Amino acid sequence: MTIVYRFLFAGCVALAAANLHAEPAGYAIEADVFAREMVERHGFDSAELRGLLADARYSQTIIDAMDRPYEAKPWRDYRALFVTPERIAGGVAFRHDNAELLARAETDYGVAPQIIVAIIGVETNYGGNVGKHRVIDALTTLGFAYPRRADFFRRELEAFLLLSREEQLDPLQAVGSYAGAMGKPQFISSSYRNDAVDFDGDGRRDLWRSNADVIGSVANYFRQHGWRSGEPVAFAVKLPSGVPAGIALVEKTPAPPETTVGALRAVGVEWDEPPFDDVPASLIRLDGVDDEYWVGLNNFYAITRYNRSNLYAMAVYQLSEAIREGYEAMSAEQNKVGASF
């Protein structure tokens, strides 16, 4: 290849790379409108805010990730991502290492330790993967160039900038998921502002580095979104012959419980759990090699408030149960060893 052709080839590659990540039409206009709204609504300095938005980078990778979420997978594949021996063992270790904080959170907020731990396990593998995208890049990309959910992400960008001002965060340094979720529990900006707590009492709410704040914040989130202390979450059932007439079947998209345990029992749905017939319930189908049917109760629906997916809620629940069993087995073994001395 001659020097001229090498030069032309390199130029074409560079141009293609630039175009791949070029801001789409309308991005700059949306950014300008947003900046004016933030100045008028919240008193941000116009020059500083526009400079900050100019430092944000559009990312086609983020757009692509939004269009292929994990929750689009069938249950048999989705479960295999999260309910694994490694994640169970990691959850048992995390619960052991943070036992006092989890006990305090259960006392203060009424949320079982294994549920808190399982959320952190599913979201970031106990802090092992908090995301690699700058939050400002994710939220500007989705707020200004993802029409299907632009309104939601513009509100989250607004909340993120307010959060940064309130918590003295550097908005150009904060990293998270492709959807702008942050820290070990992957709170979106509005949840961070509304539900995060300073559980270690140091005057800050740090969801990246403080396990105390992470644990307390997850527990508070559940209390604020309908968790009922001491109540069960879900249980597997058998259907007599297909879905009974008159019973709404809930699949991937969550819905508040619309029937009762007693009504399901009356039409022949079978299980081994106690009766508690007047408890609100949903009949849920999960697609697998053999389809699974479950009854989801109020606390199952509360888990879907964290991520609006029945697959997500079931993965959290099943991981939590495996963590609980593993932790109890470890504690029993430690007690046995201790008693032998």
Rank of each mutant, 00 (worst) to 15 (best):
A105L: 04
F160G: 04
E166M: 03
V92L: 12
G131W: 03
G51I: 05
D97N: 10
R165C: 07
N98G: 05
S59H: 05
A56D: 09
H96F: 07
R104C: 00
Y109H: 12
T124S: 15
I116V: 15
A99Q: 11
A179V: 01
F153S: 03
R76S: 15
A103M: 03
W75M: 10
A103Y: 01
A65S: 11
G43Q: 11
T141L: 02
A56F: 09
L52A: 09
D97T: 05
G91N: 13
A174S: 03
N129W: 11
M38W: 09
D137A: 00
S59E: 09
A103W: 01
D45W: 11
R134G: 00
G128S: 09
Y58D: 03
A35R: 08
A103C: 01
H42A: 14
G90E: 13
P69D: 06
I62E: 03
Y78A: 08
L139C: 07
E48V: 12
K132S: 06
L139S: 05
R155Q: 13
I88P: 04
Y58Q: 02
M182G: 01
A159M: 06
Y178S: 02
T61Q: 07
E40H: 12
Q168V: 09
D67Y: 06
I116M: 04
D77S: 15
Q173H: 01
V175G: 00
A174C: 03
L81K: 11
V130N: 03
F144A: 02
R95K: 09
F144G: 02
H133P: 00
T141W: 02
M66I: 04
F82M: 11
E48N: 14
R79T: 07
V117C: 10
A118P: 10
M66E: 10
Q168H: 12
F82H: 13
S177D: 01
D55L: 13
V130S: 01
Q173R: 12
I63V: 15
F153I: 04
D67N: 15
A174Q: 08
A80D: 15
E123T: 08
D137S: 00
T107K: 08
V92K: 11
H42Y: 15
G51R: 10
E167F: 06
R76M: 14
G143A: 06
M66S: 03
Y78C: 10
E156W: 08
P85Y: 13
D45E: 15
R36K: 14
F152V: 05
Q60A: 07
S46H: 11
F82P: 11
A47F: 12
A72I: 07
Q114E: 15
E100S: 13
H96N: 09
I119Q: 06
T124E: 08
D97Y: 01
T107L: 05
R95S: 08
A145V: 01
L172T: 10
T140E: 04
L142G: 01
L162G: 09
S177R: 02
L169G: 02
V122N: 10
Y146D: 02
N98V: 03
A93M: 10
S46N: 14
Q168Y: 05
T61L: 07
R68D: 13
I119R: 06
L172G: 06
P69M: 08
R79F: 07
A174Y: 00
E158K: 09
F144I: 04
F160E: 04
L161E: 06
